[in-house]
């Protein structure tokens, strides 16, 4: 029973840390499936977290904070879109630029507006997202096995958590069951064919980039307004890159993305848990190894040692309409 309780606690924190990963990885999925590589997920998420934390602190409303987060993230996504779609610039370079601009601007503006060393004020009351108790969570808590699973693992999360997990099947539906999704996948594989069919490649890619911005915005809002109560300097701490790794690990497929993010989240939760606690059979594993494991796994996968990760064929290549 003791092991079971520990497991529930670890899984619960797994869910908590996976949510921003899932949102950001799905964001990257829309963009990359349309042929726009995006390593600026980190920056968009950071800027959104700051905008959300700042707007919620000023207005006292979590929803306005969420809207501000999405707005800022979409703006940055459009900058990336402008550079890589209209100007046909290097998408990697543009993504790197957005990461730096977000990293610097959040601190400078935060310091100028709130004077708390790059933090935003603590969010209280309505300014922060609250957790939701599912019906009967308290009543069934005492039922063995199923009770803790329902009331501790499934219930008691933020609305955004449920949104993130619902977005996974939704993204699958959009991608594989709608006309937009078909065209989105096509434009990432063979933009020439989409163009021949009379569909605008730039407009389609812009829409994909906007979807990416919206999801990164939600991810950022979750970080600063749900997971913690306020923005802290550099709070994404590489989550955008872990999400990118998860996206590759999932081979650019929505359902796989969820599992990859849960796996990476689980590793994260374990590394916190294991600090100083030796594992049975293996002995004590350095925390740093656990922290590096998502990246190591992604490199091994990319190298084709466990299956093959094939990126969208037109990814990273600007589309030039032939004359």
């Amino acid at each position: 029973m003791e092991y079971f309780d520990t497991l529930i606690v670890i899984l619960q924190s797994t869910v908590r840390v996976s949510v921003p990963l899932i949102l950001a990885a799905l964001a990257g999925l829309y963009s990359e499936r349309s042929g726009i590589f995006d390593i600026g997920l980190e920056g968009k998420m950071l800027a959104a977290a700051f905008a959300g934390g700042a707007a919620a602190a000023v207005t006292g409303s979590a929803l306005i904070g969420l809207a501000a987060a999405i707005f800022v993230s979409v703006c940055l996504a459009l900058v990336h879109g402008f550079a890589s779609i209209t100007q046909r610039g290097n998408q990697i370079v543009s993504g790197v630029a957005i990461n730096f601009i977000a990293l610097g601007a959040t601190v400078i503006l935060g310091q100028a507006w709130f004077r708390q060393g790059g933090r935003t004020p603590q969010l209280t009351g309505d300014a922060r997202f609250t957790t939701v108790e599912l019906p009967f969570a308290a009543e069934v808590a005492d039922v063995p096995i199923l009770g803790p699973i329902y009331s501790n693992l499934l219930s008691g999360h933020f609305v955004l958590t449920y949104v993130a997990f619902l977005l996974v099947p939704f993204t699958w539906w959009v991608l594989y069951r709608t006309r937009f999704g078909l065209r989105l996948r096509a434009v990432g594989e063979n933009p020439g064919a989409v163009d021949t069919a009379g569909i605008s490649v730039p407009w389609l890619r812009y829409r994909a980039v906007i979807c990416c911005g919206i999801l990164c915005g939600i991810a950022g809002a979750y970080l600063s307004m749900a997971m913690t109560a306020g923005f802290v300097k550099g709070m994404t701490a590489g989550k955008g890159f872990i999400a990118l790794a998860a996206l590759i690990f999932a081979k650019w497929k929505p359902i796989n993305v969820m599992f990859a993010c849960l796996l990476f989240g689980f590793l994260d939760a374990m590394s916190i848990r294991m600090q100083g606690n030796p594992l049975p059979l293996i002995g004590e594993v350095p925390v740093q190894f656990m922290q590096a494991l998502p990246y190591i796994l992604t490199v091994i996968l990319l190298a084709g040692f466990i299956g093959k990760a094939v990126p969208p064929r037109a990814g990273g290549v600007p589309y030039v309409k032939e004359r």
Partner: peptide, 13 residues
């Protein structure tokens, strides 16, 4: 960091 990002954006992308 901002200037660095802007230089990468305007001189690169």
């Amino acid at each position: 960091t901002i200037i660095q990002g802007l230089v990468i954006l305007f001189a690169g992308a």
